[in-house]
Structure formats: C-alpha cells, structure tokens
C-alpha cells in the first residue's frame, strides 16, 4: 500500500502534511510543546536541528579552505542552457594572463561542458552528480569538497563553480562560495523571478544573457527587471551576450572586484 499524504490547516495558520506509514495508523493533532507524546508509550523528544546542517558544515570547510589561500569563489547558477558554459568560456578567454582561475564543473553524467572549457588556461575539476544520492539536480557542499583536491588552490585567485542547470535545487545548497551569480537568458520569459523567487533572491548578480537575440523576441526587459526587483531589489544586473561578447568585459570587472575584495591569505 502506498503512503497517504493528508493536508490540513491549523487554527494558527500553519499547515501540516502527514505521510502515513504502511500500517496506516491514525494521526491525532497535537502541539509541539506537548512532551507527553500523542500515543501511549511514546515520548516526544525535542531536536531542533537544521536539516542541512551537515551540508552547511562542509560548506564552511570549503569556504575556510578558499580563504586560507586567498581564493574567492563564485557559484554560477541558471536554468539548463541559459549559457553558463558559454559565459565561462568567454570569461576564461578574457581573464587569461591576468587572473588564475579554477573551475568546478557540475555536470550530471558527461564531461561535455568541462571539455568545452579545456585548453584555456584554467584548472578544471569535474563533478558528476549522477550517482549522488538524489543529487542529480544540484551541487552540494560535499560534492564541491571532493573536487577541491583536484584544483591547485594555492596557485589560484578565483574559483568559478558551474552548478547544474536547474532553477530550484541549487539555490538551497550552500557549497562554500563567497558570492552567487545567475545567468538568465532573455529566451526564458519575463516571469521567471516570480516563479523561482528563491533562486533569484539568493544571488548578488544576474547576467541577462543572449541579448543578441532581443531583435527576434518580444521580450520585455522592463517587465523582467520589475519582476526581479519584486523578489530581489538588491540584485545587480548586467546585460550580456556570450555569443557576441557584448557586456562580458563588465562581468569580468565584477569578478575582478570580487577577487580584490578577498581577504589576504591567512598563511603568508
């Protein structure tokens, strides 16, 4: 027999959903302050632990490892195909020689994106998320941690993390980055910030990509900006085309500012 989920709203406005185990025993509403347990013989034990505490502890370790050698890290997120890898390619071409960059490439099954970034002077560590436990849709802190030994961290200035293309899950996972940026493509529609507010709220910068296509679309940039402001008034934006290179220099300046803001290495 499959589980039956029930949903009801309490007087205080909170809603509960109950997954009932196979034996289908009855649930009696109760308050959390009740330590007597709602069935004879059971005891309510208060826990109060953050569900992603383990991930967040690992993220803190990653951040500390970056900080120890004066590296800044940026978590780059987007929907599938918005242009993360193309932006990274253009970025590496521009930063070559002036900044030492490492890439953590999150990809579900393949090395296709990592291959596209090879030979441009950046150290690349690929993380396949396909065999992670339910991890196929995002990078988490342990996955990024597993990639760090494959980067020459102490020789780098910046680590760019290409997350898995997904507008929901990556936003929930701190991977140890210092800043978050998004690639949003003008082909995605103006309403995306309202549909995925958690993602759009979690970033400092939104790259509005594929602006070379604007003449062919009826995309309303002002409406997009209004929607973005509704969920994240503080987000910076840059209009770019990873295809023509327009605006990519401004993004590189943003990255340079990130690196300049890095605290000095702890160990000299």
């Amino acid at each position: 027999m499959s589980a039956v989920g029930r949903f009801h709203r309490h007087a205080d406005g909170t809603a509960h959903d109950h997954a009932h185990a196979r034996d289908g025993h009855e649930h009696v509403p109760h308050d959390l302050g009740d330590h007597s347990g709602y069935r004879t013989g059971s005891e309510r034990v208060e826990v109060l632990e953050r569900i992603f505490g383990e991930n967040d502890r690992t993220a803190a370790l990653n951040r500390a490892d970056f900080a120890a050698v004066g590296v800044r890290s940026v978590n780059l997120m987007s929907s599938p195909g918005a242009g993360k890898t193309t932006v990274l390619r253009e970025t590496l071409l521009r930063l070559a020689g002036s900044m030492r960059v490492g890439i953590v490439e999150g990809d579900i099954e393949t090395s296709l994106d990592a291959d596209r970034l090879a030979g441009l002077g950046a150290a690349i560590a690929l993380v396949n998320t396909g065999d992670g436990f339910g991890g196929e849709c995002h990078l988490d802190a342990p996955m990024v941690r597993s990639a760090l030994p494959r980067l020459p961290l102490s020789d780098l200035d910046l680590v760019l993390i290409e997350n898995v293309g997904n507008l929901v899950c990556p936003a929930e996972f701190d991977v140890g980055e210092h800043a978050r940026a998004m690639v949003y493509a003008v082909t995605e529609g103006e309403d995306k910030p309202l549909k995925y507010p958690v993602m759009f709220r979690s970033v400092e910068l939104v790259l509005i990509n594929k602006i070379d296509l604007l003449p062919h679309l009826d995309f309303d940039l002002a409406a997009f900006r209004a929607n973005l402001r509704a969920v994240n008034p503080a987000a910076a934006t840059l209009e770019i085309s990873a295809r023509t290179g327009e605006g990519v220099d401004a993004w590189c300046d943003w990255l340079r500012a990130q690196v300049a803001g890095a605290p000095a290495p702890v160990i000299g």
């Binding site: 959390l32 059971s42 005891e43 034990v45 208060e46 632990e49 953050r50 569900i51």
Partner: peptide, 11 residues
C-alpha cells in the same frame, strides 16, 4: 525554516 523539531520515540 528548515529544521527537525522533534521525534516521537517508542517507549
């Protein structure tokens, strides 16, 4: 919020 608040444990 994203927390485990409590467990009901069998006697």
């Amino acid at each position: 919020e994203f927390v485990i608040t409590a467990l009901d444990l069998a006697a």
